[in-house]
Nucleic acid binder design. Structure first.
Lengths: 214, 214
DNA sequence: TTAAATTCTGGCCATGTGGCCAGAAAATAA
DNA sequence: TTATTTTCTGGCCACATGGCCAGAATTTAA
């Protein structure tokens, strides 16, 4: 469960010195910046160490290897976005409001944490095992999909939503959000607010019951 | 315009011998298979040559470098999918029918050309210039976006579609299609037909005029 | 102050990369 | 047949990578 085991075998987080904690945070931050700026492949340990202003060996000393460093980056960013987003969604009272809030809140988070999300997306798409399988492919979204499916089913049960395949809707909504980020990251002048509102409209229309058109 | 210039400076396609043409096709095919199976990063010239059963130097002889080989792969796959898809869309008579046909036809193409599309997606997401910028990032979709926007505007002008931001709709629809492929590629037992029909429904509901719900 | 543990440095290593080339082999021309 | 061009081989190169280590520097403990 924890990345390291204590000698006493307890499943407690490893006790870390002040220096260790500070270095790990510094290195994780340098990794995020480096990956966001240069892409995953070019973010070598040497680059990350140079950005942090430390020797390359320090990373090897504080992390088991590049893999553990990448895992820590993912954990930190993923935790942060979830904590900033999920409560806002859950406090809504209708399924429709939850849907809108999900999209709008994530867009707001993107605006303030562009670097972190760029790093996360780089790692998700490019981090592979030695055998070539993704560490965090689309399967890493499974948790999100299941949460969204719960939201959809609630809306369908209450009659707010029409019947549809919840898995397809979840995959598509998450893809819509990811593409919003990708497009904005590539076109920084693109209006993220408008995009978010339009995307919320899109899915609101997509899920609502509707009599056949003329 | 063409990847190579003739000595006479004419902008004609380079005259290639039979052997040259066959080798290029063979190498492009081996590159597609290798990228699809092992991912872009692991698809070294050595791997591609080994799969083709030839010496590594042959690739250097027939292609200017790895970059030109990747470009040729993209060109071939992109041309193929466009030729198989676009005519079907254009023969439809209503904007709604075009929308549905676009999604369903691409899904059908996916089923029969999984390997090619996996390679294309690998190259799109991972092929970078030495400076770290993507060769074909999301900007490579610009042509698709513009075509879709034309379709949307036609539907809006005819009253088939509600008003919405066409750029956001185009980005989202393409993202929905790409995610359908990614999900299916990761979960081969996933029902691609159902997914395509549900996705077509999703966007049909999303674009149609609709009176506000209850 | 001295001793021990922690933290850091700079450099070395094996590995894999894309590009390149001299010369062998094969196809084509004379 | 012989001469010439095209095609191919196998190996070499410089470079970058992640991991590793001996010993120096620093912090903490006694």
């Amino acid at each position: 469960m924890w990345p390291e085991n204590n000698s006493d075998g307890q499943e407690t987080p490893p006790r870390r010195s002040f220096i260790e904690e500070a270095r790990r945070a510094q290195i994780i931050g340098a990794a995020i910046t480096t990956i966001a700026e240069t892409g995953f492949d070019a973010a070598s340990l040497a680059q990350i160490a140079a950005r942090a202003g430390i020797s390359k060996g320090v990373i090897s000393y504080h992390f088991a290897g590049k893999d553990e460093l990448m895992e820590q980056v993912v954990t930190q960013v993923y935790t942060s976005v979830t904590e900033s987003t999920l409560p806002r969604v859950l406090e809504q009272e209708s399924a429709i409001a939850m849907l809108r809030t999900h999209i709008l809140t994530i867009a707001a988070y993107m605006r303030d944490h562009r670097e972190q999300l760029m790093a996360l997306r780089e790692i998700f798409t490019k981090f592979r095992t030695p055998e070539g399988r993704p560490h965090y492919g689309i399967t890493a979204n499974e948790g999100i999909y299941e949460a969204l499916e719960g939201l959809y089913r609630a809306g369908q049960d209450s009659g707010e939503f029409r019947p549809f395949d919840t898995r397809v809707m979840a995959v598509s909504q998450q893809a819509g959000i990811d593409s919003m980020f990708d497009y904005w990251a590539t076109h920084p002048d693109h209006d993220l607010d408008i995009h978010a509102r339009e995307l919320a409209d899109l899915f609101e229309y997509a899920v609502r019951p509707q009599s056949p058109g003329p």
